[in-house]
Design a binder for these strands. Sequence first.
DNA 1: CATAATAATGTTATAATGTAACAACTTTAA
DNA 2: TTAAAGTTGTTACATTATAACATTATTATG
Lengths: 136, 136
Amino acid sequence: MNEHAHISANLSKNQLLVMDALTNSDGPLSAYAILDQLCDQGFRAPQQVYRALKKLVDFNMVHRLESLNAFVACRHPGREDHETLAFMICENCGQVSEFTDNLLSKRLQHLTGAAHFVLNKMTIEFRGICINCHST
Amino acid sequence: MNEHAHISANLSKNQLLVMDALTNSDGPLSAYAILDQLCDQGFRAPQQVYRALKKLVDFNMVHRLESLNAFVACRHPGREDHETLAFMICENCGQVSEFTDNLLSKRLQHLTGAAHFVLNKMTIEFRGICINCHST
DNA sequence: CATAATAATGTTATAATGTAACAACTTTAA
DNA sequence: TTAAAGTTGTTACATTATAACATTATTATG
């Protein structure tokens, strides 16, 4: 199965609802924010959200922002390198931009390789002020 | 005030207790694990731990591991670049190793600079299996 | 088709992590 | 010596996440 094999059509009802909530959101959402949004669609308990999120993260359709305890729909351009995604998170407007960089990936691979560290997951998150917010 | 100006002597009673707990620990500790350890020393409420932790993190004596919701005493060799610390976290034994790398720092500065992103805080955490654990 | 295996759902309860707010006391600096 | 800043203690609460169990839906296989 390749990386974005799980197109929307393959998602279950709840997975689709959670995915839509994230896709239609400007920025990251907490699990409980998603739960609130989906009350009208019959959601009652956090497990319904967390279970859908777990699958969507497995499918690489959603990313968890560890420093925010929140989730974003995957929006990164191209799909070549899911392993070394990084995020810039604006602490003013909440916008998250997702990016990859080849030199960064290479260097990180070198560093973990040199330490003989078998990498499972990488978290790279920058917190700060985005260009729109500090220019005004 | 320079980076490690807050030597132990300058810490308050609670800050010192929390710092000692972290320094004497093999790996990262959650705030509540610290609270449990310090019950004997009179700690009663999470605030006592969280307040001390906040100061210790401000002083760069302790780091928060976002992907674990836990805290470690700073152990990185040298002190030249507190801004671009990274962590390798073994998911088997719990060991955390802290490192910096000049090329990595440069690349990250380039990337945030190019995006005109004003960086406040950087989180770089690798989860995986350390050399000791996968060689046995 | 039958049916076994897997996946998804609904639900209640609880665990784990983190903060607000208020009152008191201690240390530092003017 | 007294005002300011920092520290502590405490109660209550908010937020984030998981355990456990029962049920239904979907998929794969003989």
